[in-house]
Computed example of a mutant assay.
Amino acid sequence: MGISYKKLKEIQNRQITEMSRMTPEHVKLYDEISTIARHAPADERTQEEWILSAGKAIVQAQRDNISARELYGPDLEQDIHAQLGITNIAPEKTAAVEVGKSSPTRGNSSTASSKKNANAVEPQPTENPEPVKRTPKWYAMIAWAALSFVMLIQGCVGLFVGWTGGDTEPFQHISLFSLLVAAVGGIALVEMLRRLAERPDDEGADKNTVPKVNLKGIIIYIVIVVLVLFVGYPLRDKLPVFTLAPWVSAVIGVVGLATVRPLFGQKKTA
């Protein structure tokens, strides 16, 4: 079972947190069992989750004033392999177990085995973060930001042209058609960039998996932009045209960008 790079770093950071709560003696033991677990013939996810669980068990034993070494049997490596679910134990060790079953000390061996199993640390599954949901509010935020950015650019360019003595007439008008194209085009651009940047890591897939591009989604958004352009272009002269001084456009753009977070950001809950 593979593990994504994001999930691997998350688990390892939690391991470091647990280690920071240990005494130097227990840190030394934790390093030893971590090394054994990572060299065990088990998949990486099982190894790292078990190491994290072992760290939590050591910290709990420390709080209970118990030596963490008592959580494991005399053969540390064999005990860790057993807790990881590795059954291919060496033949000589298997033979020793069989002899122990037929010896008079069977009762003592069973008691020790039961105690060791009781202290066994089971890997704990970790939760995968949910992907960002694309809600109408999210799309409205993109359109708002795109319109604000367009207004800011038009206003700043108009101010620069006026400052250099040029004609600012072209920068004092903006049509409703241009605003529609800016809004829809902004949504399409952001969606295409998001889909191109999506990696298997975001869904908890194997970090070695080759990223897949969602061509269907990209094509859909391109088609939407093309439809807006071809359907709206003949109507560009019939749609309203707004007259705004360059400085007014610049102010609208600044205010629009500044209010993106207050209007569309997630509110903190107590």
Rank of each mutant, 00 (worst) to 15 (best):
Q15A: 08
T17V: 11
M22F: 10
V27L: 12
L29E: 04
E32C: 03
T35Y: 08
R38K: 06
H39V: 00
H39K: 10
A40S: 15
P41M: 05
E44L: 14
Q47E: 10
E49V: 01
S53M: 04
G55A: 05
A57I: 01
R63E: 14
N65A: 14
I66F: 05
I66D: 06
R69Y: 06
G73H: 03
G73D: 11
E77M: 07
H81R: 13
H81P: 00
H81G: 02
A82E: 12
Q83M: 13
I86R: 02
A90R: 11
A95K: 12
A96N: 12
S102R: 14
S103F: 08
S110T: 09
A112K: 14
N117E: 11
A120V: 09
P125E: 12
P129K: 14
E130H: 10
K133P: 02
R134E: 06
K137F: 06
W138M: 13
I142C: 09
A143G: 14
A145N: 10
A146I: 02
L147S: 00
L152M: 15
C156A: 15
V157I: 15
G158L: 07
G158W: 05
V161L: 14
W163R: 08
G166F: 04
Q172C: 12
Q172D: 09
L179F: 05
V181A: 09
V184I: 15
V210L: 13
I218S: 09
I218D: 07
Y221V: 10
I222W: 04
I224F: 15
V225H: 05
V226E: 07
L227P: 06
L229Y: 15
G232Q: 10
R236K: 14
R236E: 13
P240A: 01
A245M: 14
V248E: 01
V248P: 01
V248S: 03
V255A: 13
A258R: 06
T259I: 08
T259P: 05
L263Q: 12
Q266H: 12
K267Q: 12
A270M: 09
